[in-house]
Amino acid sequence: MGILEVKNLTLRFGGVVALDDVSYEVKEGEIFSLIGPNGAGKTSMLNCISGLYRPNEGSIQFKDSPITNLKPYKRASLGIARAFQNIELFPHLSVLDNLMLGRHVRMKTGVLAGGVFFGKAQREEIEHREKVEQVIDFLEIEHIRNTPVGTLSYGLQKRVEVGRALSLEPDLLLLDEPMAGMNTEEKEDMARYIIDIHEEMQTTIVLIEHDMGVVMDLSDHIAVLDFGKLIGYGTPNEIQNNQKVIEAYLGEENTV
């Protein structure tokens, strides 16, 4: 059963058709990769899923209920989390606070309880702090726990951004080029984290990534976008042998 179902999605910006009648489904518990050249519409697709863009046509279903018209914050509380292509962390806050923000929808403390910070509010803070510490352990960022995020290296910021999304304990995790701009070692680490997230937490992952080696290794299914159109869908093996994909995207440089 598909945890996410995208049907006939079309998104236009004036004359530009960023997404053109795209349909696919993401199965529960899989790693699903979206690939395609720059400007193909991959980020636009994630923006539609997380609610930042409203598609002109089509619908999106998450866990069998339509979310096409929901505001982004509601989708987060349904269990959709995201790491952005261009880092969107809260730069003045520490790593810890960024991750605690990831738990916003899982917490309840309001203004009054928070301001008094006694009893229940304090217990809740501790309880969620424990969850966040698990994510910190998992991503091996203990040493920068209290560092303001803005001062961290690019690679670490990318990792913290994944951590913030993970702190939400999402059912669907959207990762927009989490390895872009990283060196080989950082890339390998990130690939390992993604595999671990998938195996240990059974989180469904939608991954956008340019490194074909990583994509082929990690993915259960792959969808290929080109100029907003879905030109291929299938297992890594099927994609590697899909003539249309080879022509449009993999081209000569990645001879398969």
Partner: peptide
């Protein structure tokens, strides 16, 4: 700091 990210975080 970042209203878009804030909204996506819920």
């Amino acid at each position: 700091d970042r209203d878009i990210a804030a909204e996506v975080m819920g």
